[in-house]
Write a protein that binds this DNA or RNA. Structure first.
Lengths: 340, 340
DNA sequence: TTGTAGGCGTTATCAT
DNA sequence: ATGATAACGCCTACAA
């Protein structure tokens, strides 16, 4: 049970002052190379470990960025994290990650925890049902914050996300071009901002064509197993639409399972477009046409925006809207190569 | 630019000492309810935020657990995180998460960062190519550590994972029962422990049946897009095997895409079993038979083991092996209901 | 039940 | 180029 080795021990061992030793660990100040070397070897000899907590207390910055996610289960979140962390990591920042599990109350507690931990910056993808009050609390913390992907609490903060209205419009226009007239929108939790936006874009596209209409929509968790049930129910009770717009790829997977189970003859003529374009979309039978979200790039842009904010806290609030792109494969009716 | 509100300010405002105020924020000691109330309302009035960093410095525990993951892109990691965090969260522990991107050098740096941050506990799913030296460094940190899922660096630490040898055997035996004799194992990075184990289990099963043999194996990232290429290449150059064992579900998805692209007539008679059993497996056409990993449960068990370790640091090293289960659907040759 | 005093390990400031 | 000293905000004793 040996006592912790502190900078003071290192300094004593090297025959210098604590201040000097401190400059060495931080690669700061102007010291002779010989002194630096001497201190370094003392650190080695004693097995010194830098105590970032103590440094943070004194320097009042933790080199830590908080990340509040709604649910790590979605593929998008993993991709987003990769993009975020790769950029932040290059600046020596570590991520304090927490998941709200789509529960605003839990999200409140997590925000509290993040402030108590004095994170230098904060990234939030708001949970479903996030209120305006949360946006205000976020603002009041005084921590440089970027809201990403879901625009729920973004009215006061910098926001980075995808232009979902455009995404919905792209999906709609393409399906209309294929001749579809009756549409169903499937999945996405009620009130979720990206869902509202995509639907708005879709409706805008439909409004431009006579006879085109949205015949049904269903809200729910954008998961394959939910979509399978919801779609099967729909197919049993309503006439089949010409096209189905799915809130994400998982929903599309569930839709195809349901089609094969209850209306196999319709598999080939149903037109489907979904969102996100995860890897599996290209592998599906038929290959799924999808509006690509590119979570990794959203993550990178978010990191970049956060760094800008941390460097210039008084800068204006930014809004970064990334343009989505429709990757057309077979499910929409295109006859492209098997796995475009 | 107001100065930070400290406990001393709160104490002054409430007319008590710093110590008393400290007891209030921690819900500790025995104080009169009236005092507690008074201090609390002072906190409210002044907008006090607890400074966990300062507390950590003094109390030498950070209420933070480090999590080092190899790659957040795999679905399994998301599930694992959910399980881990839900248990740890109940104890007021926060996760400091970092991804090594399958790079041992980066993993070393992350471990360094975790120690500098004085995490109270550490969970590691080792990156590919993790050396024994890493296991030793892990041990030397003195931090309660649990290695999960991949047994690479687990020789010295507590380990929680799935019995992959058994998993491989289950897959093999079931496929043999269906009459398969020639096998291919596809995916998983070279040297990866779960891959080695699954393959060992599979071979053990094959050894028990005359004429059964592994005709090929391919190593690579267990991703659908990789699997698609690898499988297509295989199908073009070698005679088709009776069965393919896939390192995870994504590989199976890629295999089916390749089959449809280059050998569509074989889609129905090929027998496929994979690992993990993610949601999409049940939705695929055909529904994929998979050895269920249940990342969420692995996460929970890992958290439980870590808490045990943190409560009793001198306890013996534990090894928790979870039994996998084969979920038989259609891809293995079973004729069950569409999406069993 | 409440108050006093000292220190956790580092860094900032001012000297030398 | 290096050293002395005082914070940073809180917690742990122990005393009252």
């Amino acid at each position: 049970m040996n006592k912790r080795v502190t900078l003071a021990d290192v300094a004593a061992h090297a025959g210098v002052s604590r201040a000097t030793a401190s400059l060495v660990v931080r690669d700061a100040g102007s010291l002779s190379e010989s002194t630096r070397e001497r201190v370094r070897s003392s650190m080695q000899a004693l097995g010194y470990v830098y105590h970032r907590g103590a440094a943070s207390l004194r320097a009042s910055q933790t080199k830590t960025v908080g990340l509040i996610l709604p649910d790590p289960g979605y593929t998008f979140m993993g991709e987003f994290t990769i993009g975020l962390e790769s950029v932040l990591g290059d600046r020596g920042l570590l991520l304090l990650t927490a998941n709200a599990f789509e529960d605003p109350a839990r999200q409140d507690r997590l925000l509290q925890a993040m402030t108590e931990n004095q994170v230098d910056g904060l990234v939030v993808i708001p949970a479903l049902g996030t209120s305006l009050a949360f946006a205000e609390r976020l603002e009041r913390t005084g921590i440089p914050t970027v809201v990403a992907t879901r625009a729920e609490a973004a009215d006061l903060s910098t926001y980075v996300g995808i232009d979902n209205v455009l995404g919905g419009r792209l999906a709609g226009e393409h399906l209309l071009w294929h001749g579809a007239r009756s549409f169903v929108y499937l999945g996405g939790l009620a009130g979720l901002r990206p869902r509202v936006d995509r639907l708005a874009g879709l409706k805008k596209a439909l409004a431009a064509v006579r006879g085109a209409r949205l015949v049904a929509e269903r809200t729910g968790p954008a998961l394959g197993r939910w979509a399978r049930e919801a779609a099967a129910e729909l197919f049993r009770t309503e006439p089949l639409p010409d096209a189905i717009v799915c809130h994400n790829d998982s929903v599309a997977f569930g839709v195809y399972r349901a089609l094969r189970d209850v209306a196999p003859e319709a598999v080939d003529r149903m037109r489907v477009v979904s969102f996100d374009d995860v890897d599996e979309a290209a592998l599906w039978e038929p290959p799924i046409s999808s509006v690509a979200a590119n979570g990794r790039e959203v993550g990178q842009q978010t990191a970049a925006a956060l760094l800008r904010l941390m460097d210039a806290p008084d800068a204006d609030r930014e809004v970064v809207l990334l343009r989505p792109e429709l990757v057309a494969r077979r499910s929409c009716g295109c006859a492209g190569p098997a796995g475009g």
